[in-house]
């Protein structure tokens, strides 16, 4: 297996760009920093590190209608108080800083928000967070980290299965979920024999991944990455 490159040397010197704004805002900001001092210190590790529960909603005024929900995200129990309108996607992105799941359309039309709920891939944009009480949710951050990539993540790099990277977390979560579906014997639109054994052929991969749009259109490469992982897993 070729070497996986080190984490990106692409960090931006933007820390000093934090917006402090007017004095009131500044106070809010400082309180946040004080309350979650790990945030800035940990840099990008923050995204998957212990600071992940730093609830953004703590800055918003408490709302009478907010509901508590308990989610098990990437193996860690997380409690949130949320406006019931908050989608699972926005809970991850805006309240838990798990921004790996992407918002491409917010209407179930692109697949960029794909996460695994109890092992199954779904569009997290079309699901309310409060509907997931007690659910086990795996996001791209839970699959692997730059230092310890999931085999599917590594295969995407090797096969250049992405360009702009925006649909990529969704493609990868979807691919992982898809291989599970094949293993479970779930047929697809292109399965010639509904009763036969399901396989990860190129045609099957293409059909089963069609809920994940990629406008950079790395499709041909993604199929190669997924096929490699599928083969490797027997």
């Amino acid at each position: 297996m070729p070497d996986i490159p080190d984490p990106p040397k692409t960090d931006n010197p933007l820390d000093e760009m934090s917006i402090l704004g007017d004095p009131t805002t500044r106070r809010v900001f400082l309180n946040q920093v004080a309350g979650t001092s790990a945030v800035l210190a940990l840099g990008s590790n923050f995204l998957s590190g212990p600071g992940a529960q730093a609830a953004k909603s703590s800055t918003a005024p408490a709302s009478a209608e907010e509901l508590e929900v308990r989610l098990i995200i990437n193996g860690r129990e997380t409690k949130l108080r949320l406006d019931p309108r908050v989608t699972l996607l926005d809970a991850l992105r805006e309240h838990l800083q798990l921004t790996g799941s992407k918002k491409g359309c917010d209407h179930g039309q692109c697949g960029a928000c794909t996460v695994l709920v109890d092992g199954r891939r779904i569009n997290s944009c079309l699901s309310l967070a409060v509907m997931h009480e007690g659910d086990k949710i795996t996001t791209i951050e839970g699959l692997g980290t730059p230092a310890k990539l999931h085999p599917m993540q590594a295969a995407f790099i090797r096969h250049d299965g992405f360009q702009c990277g925006y649909c990529t977390p969704g493609q990868i979560c979807s691919a992982v979920g898809m291989l599970g579906e094949i293993k479970a014997g779930i047929p697809s639109h292109v399965s010639a024999d509904l009763l036969g054994k399901m396989s990860a052929s190129d045609e099957e991969i293409r059909e089963r991944m069609s809920g994940n749009l990629c406008r950079c259109a790395a499709y041909s490469n993604i199929v190669e990455a997924v096929r490699e992982v599928a083969g490797g897993n027997g």
């Binding site: 179930g108 697949g111 794909t114 199954r120 891939r121 779904i122 569009n123 079309l126 699901s127 979807s174 979920g177 898809m178 579906e181 047929p187 697809s188 639109h189 399965s191 509904l194 089963r208 069609s210 809920g211 994940n212």
Partner: peptide
């Protein structure tokens, strides 16, 4: 079965 599998995407069918 065929009709279901031709609809939407796997993510949507899962939900």
């Amino acid at each position: 079965s065929r009709a279901l599998l031709s609809g939407a995407s796997a993510q949507l069918r899962n939900k």
